[in-house]
Design a protein around this nucleic acid. Structure first.
Length: 633
RNA sequence: GGUCCGCUAGCUCAGCUGGAUAGAGCAACGCCCUUCUAAGGCGAAGGUCUCAGGUUCGAAUCCUGAGCGGAUCACCA
């Protein structure tokens, strides 16, 4: 309808406004609730052109539209706003169209180019935490939304399975794991620990011992014992000590940190970890076996967590397989002048013209840095999927700079698809007590958190749920659906790019603007439909939409646009907030208008069908957020 | 210090091409379960949209500057 009016105005622009107007000057908005009307046209831009008051201009436009459109019932001009009311038959037809469309809201499958969405991308040395939850729910949901918008989607993650951090857990496990009666070190099997938790435990163990050793060295230095340290190190240490004198507390702390860094480099533990990395890179069989074994423990652990989250991936990329990529491209870029070489042999790109700094892309020893890999991986993906058109990286906003540089480099290297790469940058999740810090033990573990929200959902559902006739298994499933629904919605309803506060109490809340509130509406409708025995009913023309029903149809009609917007803006939050609005509208309707107890059969059927369509959109929308819609709760 | 991001009710957040009297939820207050699931509905209360300029018929929204908070600027990943 909006488009029809727009077209009408554009076609008759000269007659109405004495000049050809641009499409952007036609501004529509939803009509205020306290005013009669379904759609509002802002008149101000035209009043000037027509050299008359907004009031008269509005009336002239309104009259013109009503003369040329069957669907316009009436109009009214208030304060320069032209409020248009559509006819009953317009709304009836619109409802009819929604009702007849079983995939309402979805663009035709694969009608848009292929997009790859990357999310999760964990390290294999520690378990997943709250930050990962936001990342994963966000990425998964966005992938589903983009799919609904018609794109073919490849869900992927990069697994950071190599590097010094992995060697740290490996080393700690070898050195510090106690032996059981059979002489075995700890394993997931003999301890019953989840694999990622076990490995994470040894990463922490390493860090603890590593710090202790560094502190030991610092106190030695403090006592003037420098035996066994290189003169360069001793000199640096002494320089730092001198620098400490007369500085403010903050500056002193910074220097102390540097001293700590220096001492850490002198620990035998770090040296051993580095040795291990060298062995790994040389494919030393024993090291490789240890690495494979421990990583497999982690993958088994992650798999359980992903299952609970209800997310999946189409393709995995392992850093151990991609970390050597990208070097060839650098060499080529060096030849074509995109990069330049410094005297020490390191390769750089100069981005100062773009307002950024110089960035290293290859170390002086010829090895790759982080961004080299990312360049290589990106290119690799486009050769893995020849019809791939763009990529979305779901990564925290602390890497904004990195991705800016990455996309810029890819663009400079001449890859046309670089402009279709997008960094879905999301804000950190804070706790009421502040930032999550592993050192202070304030990391919220993903498994623990999920268990907690499900427990809470169990408690409340047992109290007020409608569980009669439900088997134990189904009950358990329902508790999980509600608990996870609450958690996912809580994390998704906030604009991704914003930093958000995670309040543990609110996150298990099931009333108000929450996932379970939306699920509840769905369950209520399912109950109505079951009792109403709605089967093969026809929508009758005699069904007159009441105001509350018209509002619902209006709200439903927005769904396809919302999906498009959510995809275009990379924001599941838009969809989440829309569903909340829809459900509020429904709850109001439900409380005001009788449905099953309505005497008029046509009205009853019409309302049941309306409910069925609300349920259809809720279910479909929740699915795009990765949330289940139970039929009973 | 440079760059980027954020700031809206006591708290958590919507408000995305500038548009009418800035909206929700939570918390606190009042009402509604012998009509369909009260995880609900209705009502009242709660605001200097961080501040100061500017552009505009019109600014929470755009521009400039300031304040506060955060991130980032490694031959780490």
């Amino acid at each position: 309808m909006e488009n029809k009016i727009k077209e009408l105005l554009l076609l008759n622009s000269v007659e109405l406004f004495n000049t050809q107007i641009s499409e952007t000057s036609i501004q529509f908005q939803a009509t205020r609730k306290d005013v009669k009307g379904d759609l509002t046209l802002v008149v101000f831009p035209f009043a000037k052109l027509m050299q008359t008051s907004p009031q008269l201009a509005g009336e002239k436009i309104g009259t013109f539209i009503s003369e040329h459109s069957q669907e316009l019932d009436s109009f009214e001009v208030i304060n320069g706003f032209l409020n248009l009311s559509f006819s009953d038959s317009y709304w009836f037809n619109s409802f009819h169209a929604i009702n007849a469309n079983s995939t309402f809201g979805m663009a035709p499958q694969n009608s848009q180019p292929m997009i790859m969405v990357e999310y999760s991308s964990p390290n294999t040395n520690k378990p997943l935490h709250l930050g990962h939850l936001r990342n994963i729910f966000l990425g998964y949901s966005l992938a589903e939304i983009v799919k609904a918008a018609g794109h073919e989607v490849i869900k992927t993650q990069v697994i950071n399975d190599r590097g010094i951090h992995i060697c740290k857990s490996m080393l700690a496990w070898e050195k510090f794991s106690p032996l059981n009666s059979k002489g075995e070190r700890e394993t997931p099997a003999n301890t019953g620990l989840k694999g990622d938790k076990l490995v994470g435990k040894y990463y922490v163990e390493f860090d603890k011992r590593f710090n202790a050793e560094a502190n030991e060295i610092i106190s030695q230095w403090g006592n003037g014992e420098f035996d066994g340290f290189s003169s360069a190190v001793v000199e640096t240490y002494k320089k730092f000590q001198e620098a400490l004198v007369g500085k403010e507390e903050k500056a002193q702390q910074a220097i102390q940190d540097k001293i700590k860094e220096l001492a850490k480099n002198e620990t035998t533990l770090l040296r051993e970890a580095k040795d291990m990395l060298v062995k790994w890179e040389a494919r030393d069989p024993q090291t490789y076996l240890l690495w494979t074994t421990m990583n497999n423990w982690v993958y088994a652990g992650f798999e359980l967590t992903y299952q609970k989250m209800g997310v999946d991936f189409d393709k995995l990329y392992y850093e151990s397989e991609t970390y050597l990529l990208g070097k060839d491209v650098i060499v080529e870029g060096l030849r074509s002048g995109v990069f330049f070489k410094k005297d020490d042999g390191s390769v750089w790109i100069d981005l100062t013209a773009e307002g950024l700094d110089e960035k290293i892309v290859l170390r002086s020893d010829g090895t790759a840095v982080y961004i080299t890999q990312d360049i290589g991986t990106a290119i690799d993906r486009f050769s893995d999927y020849p019809s791939l058109d763009g990529m979305v990286y779901t990564v925290g906003n602390e890497q904004d700079y990195h991705f800016k540089v990455l996309f810029l480099i890819l663009h400079k290297l001449g890859y046309a698809w670089a402009k279709n790469c997008f960094h879905l940058s999301y804000g950190m999740v804070d706790l009421p007590s502040g930032k999550m810090k592993s050192r202070e033990g304030t990391i919220v573990d993903a498994d623990d958190l999920m268990e907690e929200v499900i427990e809470k959902a169990t408690e409340i559902t047992k109290e007020r749920g409608h569980l009669e006739g439900m088997s134990e298994n189904l009950r358990g499933e329902l508790y999980a659906q509600i608990g996870m629904g609450g958690l996912k919605y809580y994390l998704l309803k906030v604009d991704p790019k914003k930093r958000m506060l995670f309040n543990p109490e609110e996150s298990v809340d099931l009333t108000g603007n929450t996932g379970p509130f939306i699920q509840y509406a769905h369950a209520r409708i399912c109950s109505l439909l079951k009792k109403g025995k709605l089967e093969n009913y026809e929508l009758k023309n005699s069904f007159q939409l009441q105001a509350e029903e018209k509002e619902l149809v209006k709200c439903l009609a927005l769904y396809p646009t919302i999906i498009k917007d959510a995809a275009a803006n990379y924001s599941p939050a838009l969809l989440a907030n829309y569903l909340y609005e829809l459900v509020k509208q429904f709850s109001h309707f439900y409380q005001t208008i009788p449905i099953l107890i309505e005497a008029n059969e046509d009205a009853k059927v019409g309302r049941l069908l309306l409910c069925a369509n609300v349920a259809k959109v809720i279910k479909s929308g929740l699915a795009l957020l990765g949330i289940d819609a139970p039929e009973k709760m």
